[in-house]
Design a protein around this nucleic acid. Structure first.
Lengths: 346, 346
DNA sequence: CTGTTAGCGCATTCAT
DNA sequence: ATGAATGCGCTAACAG
């Protein structure tokens, strides 16, 4: 009667309360192949209800030797990019009956490695790593070893948006999206371009720039090197980059492509300050379709990535059969969204 | 030698490899009061390293009877509001050495209750519930019972931004922020106002409107009822609400207050379409300081909430000593951010 | 179909 | 200081 504080009722308590054996209680409550007399079953359920019994997941994990956990590593959950992916992963995990535990790497390779070690302690069924790869070869190698060890004990690892390590990967088609964007802009009548790109060590920035270039090339156009500014991958970077471009002189550039929306927004801010009319004097396009994109003036042309689906795809990949010898690569395409920052050009 | 697939090395393996007893291995690896011969200790560590041993967290949890887990429930992780709070919780949890598992309620009270039940299975030390309360009394009661049961077994629960249930709560000072905003705007020279508010069942919307009203009242001003439009808490709601307001006629209104930024942004969009100059003909202010706020034209005046600190405060509260008889209420204030959507008025 | 028993991996008494 | 033995809560043979 006296429910001791600091201790939940156990299966044992339920069994006693219901007047059945431990095994019967277990089978009624959690057993898969149910072969329990309906009466007993009801008694057990009632007892559990009465006692407020909740099965101890750790004990179950230990006993059956397999957990129902998924671990998700993210660079920064406050970043809408990762938040969207996480949303996809979380809802997919829940549908699969998995509980997900989450870790934030803060874009640090050391922390990422530490978190992998820590989270492995949970014996998760799946480990999903999201975010750009870093450049530290030693850490990459240590991480790879850790992940391989994890796989060798039956775990599955899926990388998201980073295809450099030998594991199953889901990525967005940054190259293709940028190429499509370039072609759409050529269709709109643009012929002369400038670009703001992130530091070239960022694969994302590289792919997007390359795609944009190739899209232009498909129409016999090109992006002159002197009209490409390499700067930070941030709003401030876009702001600064636009400044640099202006001081170099825009030449005949009709459109400025920034490799992501926050840079584009920063650039627009700078252009406004410098009284460069957008899109009249210079059109602007970005990449990502952040929510701000449609609310700036003029609304920003960009490429939308199916971020939630990326998360969902990661789970599907993880749960779909055994890993092959070669890592699987899933690529999800984006979609060009034309807005008023790049009106059709007479 | 042959490492069986699908099975991690256990402490037993490590002990054997190091030629010591299970107990010694345990003490060397995880024991708190370390009284292990330095030589043995080194042997154990080396063996663990060699085998790639990672302690099984579930087993530890079972053995010591206390977990190192925190469970976090969030309405929608893709929503920047919750993402920011989650970021605060996650980093706080990690500092406290807690692993956090996350669940998404999708703004459904049923799902919230289900998730609480599921997550209780983990025996988390702390359970943090984020998001607006719902109106279903029956579910609220069931949830309360579940949470009280959880507390009675030693768990801690903290509610974030919903003070209606009898548990420790961290909330933002919506009322105070709106009041401060109103006073700042009066200082800027505004005297006549209109407002867009969410459905009145939303506590947040109510508090903000009430604060705004009281801030005006402090200066002998008021918000006439016919200038208050109740609409959806979304961008579309703001867009529609602004339309309604215009068709009613703005009268002498100089400034439009929307109870959140997305509504304000929607309203600005509508105003632009209707050729109402912002801020020339009508100034606009919002609430939340979403990242879009400073990138719209004109940049939006608003109130910034310390969302990450809210998350951090939730953890502090949960980890700070025992619960008192009365639930603790922590309130974090916001900060008025004046931008060009509300210039000083001659 | 039900109950008994033996682990799961680990921490922690209790002896030594 | 170390090792052997016990138990955490539960599932899964195993017998009945």
């Amino acid at each position: 009667m006296a429910q001791r504080a600091h201790s939940s009722p156990t299966l044992h308590d339920v069994a006693r309360e219901a007047g059945v054996s431990l095994a019967t209680a277990s089978r009624s409550l959690n057993g898969s192949t149910r072969k329990v007399n309906e009466e007993y079953r009801a008694r057990v359920l009632a007892a559990a209800e009465r006692l407020g019994y909740v099965a101890n997941l750790s004990a179950q994990t230990i006993a059956k030797g397999t957990s129902s956990t998924l671990a998700l590593l993210v660079s920064d959950i406050a970043d809408p990019y990762f938040a969207a992916i996480a949303a996809g992963v979380l809802s997919g995990a829940e549908q699969a009956g998995l509980i997900t535990t989450m870790g934030i790497t803060q874009r640090s390779a050391e922390r990422e490695l530490d978190l992998v070690k820590t989270l492995r302690g949970q014996r998760p069924r799946v480990l999903i790593l999201t975010g750009s790869r870093y450049v530290d070869a030693a850490l990459d190698e240590a991480l790879t070893r850790e992940l391989q060890a994890f796989e060798s004990t039956g775990g599955r690892v899926v990388m998201v948006s980073q295809r450099s390590l030998p594991f199953d990967t889901v990525q967005t088609d940054d190259y293709g999206g940028a190429r499509d964007l370039a072609e759409s802009l050529v269709d709109q009548g643009y012929r002369s371009f400038a670009a703001l790109t992130g530091v070239s060590s960022l694969m994302t920035a590289r792919d997007r720039l390359a795609g944009f270039r190739d899209g232009l090339a498909a129409h016999g156009l090109s992006l002159p090197d002197e009209r490409v500014v390499e700067t930070e991958f941030t709003r401030q970077g876009g702001y600064d980059g636009a400044g640099q471009l202006l001081s170099r002189g825009l030449g005949d550039a009709e459109l400025l492509f920034a490799v992501n929306d926050v840079m584009a927004v920063g650039a627009m801010s700078r252009l406004r300050e410098e009284s460069v009319d957008v899109p009249g004097s210079l059109a602007v396009a970005g990449f990502d379709d952040i929510s701000t994109a449609r609310d700036v003036t003029p609304a920003l042309t960009t490429v939308r990535l199916p971020l939630e689906r990326v998360g969902a795809a990661a789970i599907e990949l993880a749960l779909a059969g055994q890993r092959g010898d070669e890592p699987t690569l899933v690529t999800l395409g984006g979609e060009v969204v034309l807005r008023t920052s790049t009106p059709a050009r007479g």
